[in-house]
């Protein structure tokens, strides 16, 4: 009983309760309290996460992570679907920032261009044309809010428990097997010629995958056009 991680368990349960309060349940009560409780849960969880480098690196990472997770929660709990889409876009920008923080520059801009710039805009179009009056009745009541929040608690708790156990000093990864040195990183993943190396790997080792992805995109394009065009009889 002594080595039960009290604060992470408390954070997860509080987060689950806050999520249940914030999900659209047909009334506006509890949303403010839920938001506050979620902020507290995130703060508790963040205090348990290890520090990443010096204070500047740490602050940048935690700000990006906080922005991402808060936007994700907002994207799921707001009642107006256009706001959900906008918060989803903010979450994409947060993940793009996280990609940039870890050295995946091309992925950061590719996520922004493709996901936030094309896919989400298309969804926004469909939303605005299909639901011009904003939040409808089916946006204000969700299915089984309590069970959904409980599911989220179980999933997040299980995942964080596994991660915590793996990275604990007596865990499976110690003594930090496979950790790369900074010279190794600078030669490979964090090389200054990032795009050149990425392109080399993409068209060298993963050439067939790229071609298959191209064919898949073509098939999806034609399929989408056929599905929509067929209705106009």
């Amino acid at each position: 009983m002594n080595d039960l991680p009290i604060i992470p368990i408390l954070a997860t349960l509080l987060g689950g309760l806050a999520f249940w309060l914030m999900l659209p349940r047909g009334t506006a009560r509890g949303r403010g309290v839920g938001a506050l409780a979620m902020a507290m849960a995130l703060g508790l969880a963040g205090s348990q996460m290890p520090r990443v480098g010096d204070w500047l690196d740490n602050s940048v990472f935690f700000i990006l992570a906080a922005v991402t997770i808060v936007s994700a929660v907002a994207a799921v709990t707001f009642r107006n679907p256009v706001y959900c889409a906008i918060w989803f876009g903010q979450m994409l920008l947060g993940t793009a920032g996280l990609f940039l923080f870890t050295g995946a520059q091309f992925l950061a801009v590719a996520t922004t261009v493709v996901y936030a710039g094309a896919i989400l805009v298309t969804f926004l179009f469909v939303l605005m044309l299909a639901q011009p009056e904003g939040k409808a009745a089916y946006d204000r009541v969700s299915w089984e809010a309590m069970l959904a929040a409980a599911t989220g608690v179980v999933v997040v708790a299980a995942l964080s428990m596994i991660i915590g156990r793996t990275f604990a000093p007596e865990g499976a990864l110690y003594p930090w097997l496979g950790m790369p040195t900074s010279q190794q990183l600078a030669a490979n993943v964090l090389t200054p010629a990032h795009v050149a190396r990425l392109g080399g790997e993409l068209f060298g080792r993963y050439l067939i995958a790229i071609e298959v992805a191209g064919v898949l995109l073509l098939v999806a394009l034609v399929g989408a056009a056929v599905i929509i065009g067929r209705e106009k009889r």
Binding site: P50, A65, T68, I69, A72, D139, S142, G152
Partner: peptide, 23 residues
């Protein structure tokens, strides 16, 4: 460690949204 935790949190939040929202 931190990236895996954030990824897990995003996955969980997405899961909750998928099973509970109707839009």
């Amino acid at each position: 460690n931190n990236y895996l935790l954030v990824g897990a949190a995003l996955f969980g939040i997405g899961l909750v949204g998928f099973v509970s929202r109707r839009n």
